[in-house]
Each structure stands twice: as structure tokens, then as C-alpha cells.
Design a protein around this nucleic acid. Sequence first.
DNA 1: TCCTAATCGAGACGGTACGTCGCGTCTTTGT
DNA 2: ACAAAGACGCGACGTACCGTCTCGATTAGGA
Lengths: 199, 199, 199, 199
Amino acid sequence: MSPRGRPRDTEVDERVLQAATELLLRHGYGGLSTDEVAERAGIAKTTLYRRWPTKDHLALAVVARLQDHDEITDTGDIRRDLTDYMEKVAAGLNRMRVAGLPPGQESRSAGTVAELVAAAARHDDVGALERDVYARRNALACRLIERARDEGRLRPDVDPMTLLEQLAGALYYRVLITGHPVDRAYAERLVAAALDGAL
Amino acid sequence: MSPRGRPRDTEVDERVLQAATELLLRHGYGGLSTDEVAERAGIAKTTLYRRWPTKDHLALAVVARLQDHDEITDTGDIRRDLTDYMEKVAAGLNRMRVAGLPPGQESRSAGTVAELVAAAARHDDVGALERDVYARRNALACRLIERARDEGRLRPDVDPMTLLEQLAGALYYRVLITGHPVDRAYAERLVAAALDGAL
Amino acid sequence: MSPRGRPRDTEVDERVLQAATELLLRHGYGGLSTDEVAERAGIAKTTLYRRWPTKDHLALAVVARLQDHDEITDTGDIRRDLTDYMEKVAAGLNRMRVAGLPPGQESRSAGTVAELVAAAARHDDVGALERDVYARRNALACRLIERARDEGRLRPDVDPMTLLEQLAGALYYRVLITGHPVDRAYAERLVAAALDGAL
Amino acid sequence: MSPRGRPRDTEVDERVLQAATELLLRHGYGGLSTDEVAERAGIAKTTLYRRWPTKDHLALAVVARLQDHDEITDTGDIRRDLTDYMEKVAAGLNRMRVAGLPPGQESRSAGTVAELVAAAARHDDVGALERDVYARRNALACRLIERARDEGRLRPDVDPMTLLEQLAGALYYRVLITGHPVDRAYAERLVAAALDGAL
DNA sequence: TCCTAATCGAGACGGTACGTCGCGTCTTTGT
DNA sequence: ACAAAGACGCGACGTACCGTCTCGATTAGGA
């Protein structure tokens, strides 16, 4: 069953994502318009919509590609590994904080992240894809925690997912809600608090 | 200093917020249109825009009013108090999860919350207001924690704000990002994990 | 050079002008609204604005089409030809006098004509178009006069354009300024006065 | 029957007309807004509307005041007197041609005049007033012509009103419709043509 | 001197239209 | 089939201006 008709121009995807990325980072989610993307990429809107059925889909594709490269290290020092991971997450968020703003400034909140979440709520498939991205990333971190727990470096009753949510959640909460900064120092404080407990 | 000119019709605010709330909850953020709100409230669009310069401003006003009634109890049992508080926060989020969906269904993600955060990023003043709402609410919880710490019911090195972020952040993370449910059971597990620590 | 992209739906122009004409004649210039026109023509406002960038442009198009059918006859009897022409011009003006009024009535002044002139002053291109319409029509009459002059039926020092302005101007002056009627009888009197002179 | 209540502040009329004139001449009819006038005159809109029930009424008042000073001379030389009068009319029109344009430029058409005519068509009383202004002015010119005719300086069958319409009409036609200039030279040519006739 | 009435400043209000923007679809011609 | 080009439908947005209204505060004349 070979595909009939003219094959898709593979170069198009690249040009579109390039243009879309540029727009998203420079002018924010609102500044990302399909008309503009098509024009900059030198393609027809039809072509664009054949691949991404919605602006939201396109935007997700852009951001997903941007954050594809986070990795998790396992040195055996769980405190340090988690802190490193949190710092990477924070870095990704901070990158979004700058999107759409004049250089030198940075928003308190990362609007683009919120828009993406909103997009996920608008379209089931965007939501599924988005959750998948996070699930994949968190699965790695989860295993890291599990290993530490199973080797006795963490309490045996630790629930890895909950611990992760405490950590990542705090970062997102600051970036999306309170607008407070997230940096290495905060990552350290956060991990310490989570590991040591409050009692 | 008496107010000059014709005073604002206070009834208008009520009617507008009523209509806007109805639309927001029934049809979601996208279904909230200024034209429709004005018509339902029986006022001119001009009047609406005089008070809320943007649809975003209006939407925030609506949600802020909805969540105005959360209270925090202080029974002396910090674990229970925090769990109760988390449950209230969760309830608010779950309410947003239903917004704009056919009855009986509920979205995985609370799109409206995300839209509101996006709105905060679009307009500085909306952001300021939004952060203010959260700050006010968190301040109460913060004091609760401080009291417990100062009375020796929590470790003396506990940072109340960070603890709070671990808790609230986790809820928001689930509701916005992973789409997992947040209920009483989760609230208990969460508080337990935060208080006991992982080490 | 074949035209690219989806061609314009030629039927749209017709439907729009139809609706606009109806509105303009029935309810006057103020009663011509782009929203209403679009709805009656069964098209989107965007489509309308793509062709006529302004209500003013649309209105001119309507009136230009209405007056497109005036012709000038050349019988050799210059007095009669001019009178006939003046009567046609008067008829066009009188038609505008009725626009926007309850049937049976007619305004003293032709408001719509004035609005059109005002529109011409608001947008350069409307003005250019409008002047073009008049120029085209007057050119014919001019040649009529020139012929009569060159054949000795008028004084050799007659300036055709000035003569025309005396005639048409008087009609417009009555219709726009003084509100007096313009009819066949006046046309005759006017032409006589212009041809015979006052001395 | 002495007037009860607080008497009207006579100074207000002046300040309003001042401001309105300024706006009308500087920014044209469209730039004359009641809000702006009220603010500049330092009065309330209520006060303004108590005296001029409509923007159109106000605008007419402004223009009427501007052209109040035309006089007609009677030297016995009818050709010269008419030319002088036409020049004054032309001057008034040319003044309107500049209204609302950046200095140094002048519109082809006198939009404000057209707007005023349109206003006259919108409100009967404005129309009546406007026609009155013209009637008063033309009556003087009419008498001038009558005198010349009765004294044998013009043909006995001359209809003064028609002659006047030929002259003034031509000016208005050029200014409103064709956009051609009106100056002393044209006035001379025009009067000559009208007096000498075409036959 | 108080009362009544009209005016004034300020600004909210209703209404109506305008023109714009962005998304996603559709219709062409050509490859 | 896919691509480029561009018209199209839809729906909302925010703005502008008009003329009306409701306040409180003045400023007169008349009882």
C-alpha cells in the first residue's frame, strides 16, 4: 500500500516550526498567528492545516520540540539528583517566562505555559499529547526515586509520584500563580523541605 | 470629598457578574463573550467596558468572587487543618474542571484556570490582582503554619511558604498538568508526605 | 498571467449592491449600515470590507451604479439637447431627494448627495472616483457644446466647461442649498438664461 | 414674567463657539465632537445640549458666525459688483476647503460644507436656518441685479434669481463636485459668460 | 430668610455602528 | 494527492460618538 499522489514536502515541517518558534518566543502565544506563520514559512495555510489541525496543535509541537532535551542524571545522591532535575524544569519554565516580551524584561508569570494548558483543555488530543510529554519525563524521575527508596536511601513508604508532584508542583505554582522566581537556590530549599519533612 | 457626577449603578455590577458567571461556568472561557454578557445583563457594552476594560478583567472578577468564601480553620491539629484547607482548594479547582462542559462530564484539566493565568500574563493589572487574591489566601495558611511551628508542633526550621507551595503546588500540578484527580484522599496523602518527609 | 487563488464570487457584488441600494434609498445614508448590508446579502462582513474598505466606498458604488445610464442626445438643436441633459441630471438629483423618506414625501435637500460629497472629502480615493464619474459624464456634454460652437451655433468665445458649470451648478445649488425644486420648467428657463445672456 | 431660577451664563456661548470653531477648522467636521468641545470649553455636556440640541446645530452656528460678514457693494458697474460678490463667496468656500487638513494643504472638496448640507437634510430646523442664511445673503444680491435690470443695465427679461443661481451654483459645483479651484480669475470668467450669454 | 426653580459641572449610561482580527474552510490553478 | 494563493464565513473584540440621565452644588428671584 504505497501512498498515492504527490508526497509531502518534508522540508515544510521544518520551515513552519522554525517560523512558529520564532513568533512564539518573540511575541508570545497571542503573537503566534497561523496567517503569519504561513507567510513567513512561505507556504499556504492549507499546507499548514494539513499537518497541524489547529493553532493549538502547532503551538504544542513548537514547545514540545523546545523541551525535548532534558535528561535526568542518577549519581546515587538523591538530593542532588532531584535538585538538578528541578533546576532543569525551572530553566524550561523561565525560558517561557521571557516569551513575547521585550528583551531584558521577563514576565512574572509564564503566560505561554498557561495558554498551552488551556489549549489542552480545548482539544482532547492536545491534552493527551501534552500529558504524554509530562508523563514520559516524570516516569524517569519516578524511577530515580523508586531506586533510591528501594535501596533504602529514602523512607520505604515514600510514594514517588506524590513526592514528584510536591516538587514540580511547587515550581509550577510559583511560575504560574504567585509569580515568584524559581532558581537553583529555590530548588535546593524545596528539595530539602520535601526530603526532611515538616514534623 | 464627595463623589462628583452621576454615581455608578451598583446594581449593574451584580447583574453583569451574575450573567458572566453563568456563561463562564456553563460554556467555559471561550463561551464568555462581552456582547452576550452585556445583553443578558441588560446593559450597554460601553457600561461594561467602563468597569472591566477587558474580557480578561471581567473573567477574573467572576472567578475571584466565586472563591471568596474559603476559610481556614485552626483546630490545633495541623495535619487536619492543612488537609481541610487543601480539600477546599481542591474543591475550587474541581469546580473549574466542570466549567463549560455538558453536565455529568468533567474535564481532566481545568482550562478556565489556565485561561485566567494566561490573562494575568496578558495584562499587568490582571496579574497583580490575581496574585493579590492568592497572596491574601495564602497569608492565612501561612500564619497557621507559623503558629504550629512556633508552638513546637512542626520542626523549627520549617519555611511556611515553601511548605504551602509543596501542598498547593501539587494540587495545581495535577489539575493543570497531569490531569489526575484531586480529592480528600489525595489531600490526606499529600499532607502526610509533606509533613513526614521522604528521608 | 492567470489569476491565483480562489477567484472572487462575482455574485457577491451583485447581492451586496442590491441590498445596499435598497437600504440607501429606503432609509437614507444613515440607514445604510455595513452590518445590515452584510446580513441581507448573506455574506460575512469581512467579505464586504475586502471589496469596499469603508461604508463610504460602498455608498459611492451604489450611487454610481444608479446614475450610470444617463445618455446625451445630439439633435443639432443645442438648446433642446442641453435642456434634455439638464432634465436628466435633475431627475437623478430628485431621486436622491426621496431617499430615506416615507413614501409620498420628499426632502427639500438631497441629503444623500451631500453625504457622498462629504465622503469624498473624507477619503481621497472616494473623491477621485467620484470626480471621475462626474468628469466622464461632463466630458460628453462638453463635446456637445464644442460641436455646437465649432459649427457656429454658439458664440465662438464660449467656454464649454464654464457653460456646463453654470447649468449643472444651478441645479445642484437649488437641490443642495436653497431647496428649490428642479424640474423641466426650470431646466428650460435655466438654459434660456445661459444661452441668451443677461446683457 | 421675569425669568426664574439661575440665569444662563452668557460667557458659556462664547467659550463653546470658540472651542467648536477651533476644532471644526482644525480637524474638520468629523473632528468636532461634543465631548471634546465641552471639555475644551470647560463646561458640562448638559450645558452644551441645552443650547444646541445637536452636534449639527452647533456646527451650523459655528459656520454661520464665520460667514456673517460678507457685504455686497453697489457701484453701478454690475459686472464688477457681481464679480466682487462671487469672489467673496469663493473666499468663504475656500476657507472651508482648508478645514481639517494639515497646514499648507487644502482639500479639493470642501467637506465641511457638504456635511452641513447633510445636517440640514437630517434636521428640518437646521435646514430652515441654513436656507435662511443663504436667502438673506442672496436677497441682497438679488436686489442688486433687479436694480441694474430696472435701470436698463441688464436685459429686461433677466430673472435675478436664476442669474444668481448660475453664478453661485457654478462656484459650489466646482468646490463640491469637480474639485476645481475657484479664484478671482474664475469669478471674472464666470460673470462674463453669464452676462454675455452663449448665443 | 427660606423656598423654589433653573443652571452648571461631572460623569455614568444606553444605543448603535464601525472597522479589525484571527481561525479554520473552501475553491481555484498548477505540480 | 499535495502545494500555493487567496477568497470566504464566522464570531468576537474593543472603540467612538451621540444624546440622555442623575447626582450635588450654585445662583438667582419671590414669599
